[in-house]
Amino acid sequence: MANTVSLPKVRPDDVPVVISAGFVVVILVLGTIYTLATIGTAPLLTPNYLLTQLQTGSFLGIVAAGMMVVILLGHIDLSVPWTMTAAAMMATYVGGDLAIPTGLAVGLAVGLFNGFGVAYMRIPSMIFTLGVDAVMRGLMVMLTGGFSPRTESTPLMKWLAADKILGIPVAVFVWAGVALVVATILGRTAFGKMVYATGNSESATYLSGVRTRRVVVGAFVISGLCAAVAGMLLAGYSNKAFQGMGTPYLLPAIAAVVLGGTHILGGRGRFIGTLVGVILIVLLNSVVSIMQMPDAARQVIYGLVIIVMLLVYGRTARVTS
């Protein structure tokens, strides 16, 4: 992963990864200069701070991993917010040993349904997953009567989200596990190749004998499962599930995937890029809040950074035919 940086020739797909990684360093340096100038220490470079950032980033990282697989197909999954919330709510609602399987089942069900609508009914993913998100929200509001459920997260969920092993947050291990699985699927399996191929041209892939509709369903299942895992982790972190807990993760997840160099129309992108994109967004958020900027300025900076970085490497080819 790191040796791509030191190679003299960078492959075109790696350019965004290198630039994003460079920008991560720039953020760290700027933040450190700021803290050195104001309080005289460099808390940004302490392992403790970086580990906390990784822990915060793990929720976003898991969501983004699933989102990336869907975006590679040229689709998008807007049902992530309430898939997260529904999985967390159902998990805490059932409780006990069955909590996590229940949450995963929710993610699986949503993924299958999304995949069915997009692949077999041929409804644009943008609008179908939007509708599924509204339906999930409606179901959860009905179930809970509009209030946050009172039930707490199970001890296992809390342990996964908030505890530490050898000083490293367990959530980071969960993220690493999910990342490893998704990266392996994308890079080392036939399914992964089919995802890239389908993203490039579904008709050509279909003519090559691939059952592309099943590939689409599989991608949405991965996205649903990732959202469910992230939702349950988040519930464990904050002790319970609550309304709207997934909403702040949708747009940053899309941004992280795209900043990492995955093409929004599908077919191109490396998983390492998504990892760097997540770290970039988490660090950016954190450094801006260290600088005590108001929420408003944070939004502006956030938007400008995404636009500027994409202008550097995310430009599409000019249409000439």
Binding site: I264, Q299, V300, G303, L304, L310, R315
Partner: peptide, 14 residues
């Protein structure tokens, strides 16, 4: 030459 969906996602934040 950015994709509208992602460019407006960011400009919306601004």
């Amino acid at each position: 030459r950015l994709q509208p969906i992602i460019a407006t996602l960011a400009s919306g934040a601004v």
